[in-house]
Amino acid sequence: MTRNLTTIAFDADDTLWHNERFFKLTQARFHDLLADFADPDHLGERLLAAEKRNIAQYGFGIKGFVLSMIETAIDVTEDRVPARVIREIIEAGQEMLRHPIELLPNAAETVASLAETHRVLLVTKGDLLDQERKLAQSGLGELFDGVEIVSAKTPPVYHAIFDRHGEGAAHAMMVGNSMKSDVIPVIEAGGWGVFVPHGLSWEIEHADPPDRAERYREIPDLGALPALVRSLD
């Protein structure tokens, strides 16, 4: 008889390691650079609108964020943005790409523990090279039975991943900090969606929790995951 739960997939950014804090710091620096041209609230709205427009072209990640900042700087200055500002935006993005990985509490212990009893996967969105860099620096790479870096997290994508790496979505769980990407679509695919809140979140990833879904769970941090998994097995 097939076990109820055989495969556990983890999101990466702000689930296993810090990420959004570096975007927030860079955005604050961006606001300082453009302070003479736009107030922070207006600039934040313009930047978010640019990010939403550009996801289809640039995807998720630092490079798309930098390009959206440059586009916003050009727009709010009506093509008068100084070259030094563009240079500083690019340098800020380069600093983000070099920033060392900081694991979240209980991340390493939880992945290692569950890897002893289940198939564990990493399923993340973002730039391929950057996500590979972060995984290599995290020290967690050898624990995963598979790594999937995707352009979007949708029910068909989860179906394909869990069919490829396991016994299908019905026997799989996705764990992450994004209700929109890590929880709702995997539940729609027939799997378990586990929400792990993070103090910072990207506005684009906000969504209402599927409170009535039988396969929805929320835990306070990754340290609570092994007990949840045991209860479902």
Rank of each mutant, 00 (worst) to 15 (best):
R133G: 05
R215Q: 13
T124F: 09
G191D: 03
E45M: 14
E218L: 12
D32V: 12
E142T: 14
E142V: 14
L48E: 12
V186E: 01
A108T: 04
K153A: 05
A35K: 14
L48P: 14
I55D: 06
S178G: 07
E116H: 13
A227S: 12
D32N: 11
Q131H: 08
L48C: 12
N177I: 02
Q27C: 10
Y58K: 13
D163T: 09
P82W: 01
G126L: 12
E218G: 01
L225G: 04
L33I: 02
P226C: 07
P40I: 01
R3P: 12
W17C: 00
V150N: 04
L103Q: 12
E71L: 03
I187N: 03
V157G: 02
L225D: 04
P155I: 05
A189M: 04
A28R: 15
A227Y: 11
F60K: 10
P210S: 12
A50F: 10
D39F: 06
N4E: 13
V147E: 05
V194C: 09
I187S: 01
I219Y: 03
Q94S: 11
R164H: 03
I149V: 05
D211S: 07
A169I: 01
D32H: 11
M179S: 02
F195P: 06
R29A: 14
D41Q: 13
I86R: 06
A169F: 02
L225H: 02
M96R: 09
Y216L: 06
L97I: 07
L114I: 08
R119Y: 05
D32S: 05
A50Q: 15
P40H: 04
